[in-house]
Nucleic acid binder design. Sequence first.
DNA 1: CCGCCTCTTTACAACGATGTAAATCCACGT
DNA 2: ACGTGGATTTACATCGTTGTAAAGAGGCGG
Lengths: 342, 342
Amino acid sequence: MAVRLQDVAAIAEVSVKTVSNVVNDYRHVRPETRARVQAALVELDYRPNLSARSLRQGRSGVIALAVPTLDMPYFAELAGSVVEAAAQRGWTVLVDQTDGLPDRERAVATGLRGHLIDGLILSPVALEGVELQRTQEDVPLVLLGEKIAGGPVDHVAVDNEAAARAATTHLLDLGRRRVAAIGYQSSADAASGVAALRRRGYEAALAAAGHDVDASLTPEVPGYLRSDGAEAMSALLGLPWPPDAVFCFNDLLALGALRTLADRGLRVPDDVAVIGFDDVEDGRYSVPRLSTVAPAKESIASDAVDMLADRIARRDQVAAREIRVGFDLVPRESTLGRTGQP
Amino acid sequence: MAVRLQDVAAIAEVSVKTVSNVVNDYRHVRPETRARVQAALVELDYRPNLSARSLRQGRSGVIALAVPTLDMPYFAELAGSVVEAAAQRGWTVLVDQTDGLPDRERAVATGLRGHLIDGLILSPVALEGVELQRTQEDVPLVLLGEKIAGGPVDHVAVDNEAAARAATTHLLDLGRRRVAAIGYQSSADAASGVAALRRRGYEAALAAAGHDVDASLTPEVPGYLRSDGAEAMSALLGLPWPPDAVFCFNDLLALGALRTLADRGLRVPDDVAVIGFDDVEDGRYSVPRLSTVAPAKESIASDAVDMLADRIARRDQVAAREIRVGFDLVPRESTLGRTGQP
DNA sequence: CCGCCTCTTTACAACGATGTAAATCCACGT
DNA sequence: ACGTGGATTTACATCGTTGTAAAGAGGCGG
């Protein structure tokens, strides 16, 4: 069966608590005793029962990360970074997929996992800040990637509006006149989310350049997948006066758009320039290489974990905070064309 | 504070055990009592303490999934499917990243997480079957994606050799004469792994067609990332007599190779045909669309979870089994060219 | 040689849930 | 009215660990 402190204690001929003290590096243990216990620990290959420890201490060393889906490279990369950052604190990460469903997000946020987890990092799609008002009974929570309007919840996010504006401005600076946007969503759920913020940045950039928003250039998409981008691009190309540039609200949409452009035999960026958002690995190897806006992903993950650690330690003693991480505009072939190559 | 069975019991004016019985749907509870307890449960918003439950029952309802990294789409997609399949059994998945390091794989396999997890699904890169010999103390284990030679461990895998052979044969059937392979690895760790099996399939296909293996056409790669594929392709194109087709041991390598070919201005498949392995989403939208071998991923995930459930239930009472999942050859533009399009 | 302080070790209770076995209730047949 | 057997409820111990408080062991100044 499993090895318990008691078994080790028997071998080392000390009390259970002394073994516990050795395991936990308690100061006042005679070196000789410590050595004897260590030997017994090794001999029996003791491993603490985390459930018992967690029950006793009220903390488990496990945090949860809830993302819409791991199938999207952005979230997969993010999950990887979070797992990494958590490991550095000795924490383990339990991954939940919400599929962007309000119910699942709510369930997760209100403590789906019983008292198993010490905290939660949630990347919300559907829920608004208000919905996530914390009661003091709930799990410590940090939100990712979305600016919650005044919600009393810690969160880490890039300045979506500014980043979207930078991307759009980049297209305008290249001299493009009909700059479309792929990523608009009108469902109530999405109204306060990433879609709305990036939309605002896009429209602000157009306004600053003296352009009106042309509704036909901002098709709605049901999701943010490659297929959605491909279909939206098809629709745009069916217009009497199609766009000469497209800002896609994430890289997957952009990759889908590139695919459609290739199918139609259009040249990128000559006929249509394309820029995405997220800087996922795929875009660095696509043909053509995808221009994008790169949020500081490593920061997002580590800041979120740090913030959560702080929230766990101080519970309700401190007001909700917001961390803004930086972003970079990364122009590549899909807006600049081939450079320096034959 | 947290709501305990005791608090609910006090409100409902019954014993703690009766509340527990209601929570667990025990048969013999008077409907009237049950109703009263239910009401109290709802009123206090009771949630079981999973640590306590786990301590008492010896099972936690949490399984671990250990993959090299979530950054690789294949593993991300797999993780998503496993989380899904586990959720259907009411299990939660704890994701570990091994980075393909022997130490991490060993640590995970020998029960890194203490008694927190009920079982482990491991996708090994570095470790051989022998290393993973189970002792009865260890966590129930299911291996993914690799045929362990005779190791007494449950595992789920595609027939890598047959699949690799099918991919290679597909290239030969197109009339290609110099078929390269990207994905060879010679490190001892990898000797029994996926690399070796796919290599065997590749060589078998060549042999069946009466070709010799040309060492210059099988460059070694340090990893299985896009960058590795891009570099290997560069090396191949530097040969006096470059290949007219390439079988890449996974889709990322293939996507990297496509990128290099585009940079050199070579046409795919006209100049060089490319086929990958894994059928990740990226390949369906790449330019050109990537031909590949598609393992039955959904089966892999659900079979692994089923197998683990069975292993958990029966522990050592049953011999190690092996589940073979099917695969499909999926020819797309990177070998067939544009079809049906203008 | 005593008392006190520090170092070291220990016994015991507690974390919250559930299995066991025993207690209590109730309806029914005699 | 009484015994029997099933339904229902309960007290208690237990899972493995750690905090608390107290006991035991030495050492030192007075």
